[in-house]
């Protein structure tokens, strides 16, 4: 599987060993982001980095694992409940002048979104490149929920992230 090196800027402590070991100069960039055009996937930089800030990521990701329909239905129901709670918390936050209530509801709304995201991930939408994700985007482009649906963004995503099957 072809891989390229990526640097986590948050972990990088600028020891710069990657510059010494990179055979193509891919790690030597002004913005510290490794040049994927130059990277040959040799892994030298990842192995040499003393702060483990460089990892090797695949260019192609594996297929979405199949999911049981009944399990998906259960997870969708749970995600809907989290989404309802997020919406409710945002409505309460929007309608109050009380500081504790406002911040508590904002915190809950954020938390509910994170919970719903995790549920949707396990309900068959783990990977942006998956067939499931593509099918949803395609359907949304064909039948937009409202006229102001950002179809251009959806189209660009389908183009940039080829369906991995």
């Amino acid at each position: 599987m072809k891989r390229v090196a990526v640097r986590n800027l948050r972990l990088c402590t600028k020891d710069c060993i990657c510059l010494y070991v990179c055979p193509t100069g891919a790690t030597d960039t002004e913005n510290s982001i490794i040049d994927v055009e130059k990277c040959i996937g040799c892994e030298n930089c990842a192995l040499a980095c003393p702060s483990s800030a460089i990892s090797m990521v695949p260019l192609e990701y594996p297929k979405q694992q199949p999911k049981d329909d009944a399990m998906v239905a259960t997870l969708n129901t749970l995600a809907q409940s989290k989404a309802d709670q997020e919406k409710m918390a945002l409505q309460i936050a929007g309608g109050t002048s009380k500081d504790s209530l406002y911040r508590l509801m904002k915190a809950i709304a954020k938390s509910e979104r994170i919970l719903a995201e995790d549920v949707m991930r396990e309900a068959g939408f783990m990977l942006p490149q998956s067939h499931n994700a593509h099918a949803i985007l395609e359907e949304l482009i064909e039948t937009p929920p409202t006229p102001d649906f950002p179809a251009e963004a959806a189209r660009k995503l389908m183009e940039n992230l080829p369906d991995n099957g």
Binding site: V6, A116, E117, P128, L157
Partner: peptide
């Protein structure tokens, strides 16, 4: 639903961030 799709899309945005795909994350 719209609520589920919101979480689905923000989750895939996070997925793109983790793959260092900034443009796709933004979309």
């Amino acid at each position: 639903s719209a609520g589920q799709l919101a979480a689905l899309c923000s989750n895939l945005a996070r997925g793109c961030e983790k793959m260092y795909k900034e443009e796709e994350a933004g979309l």
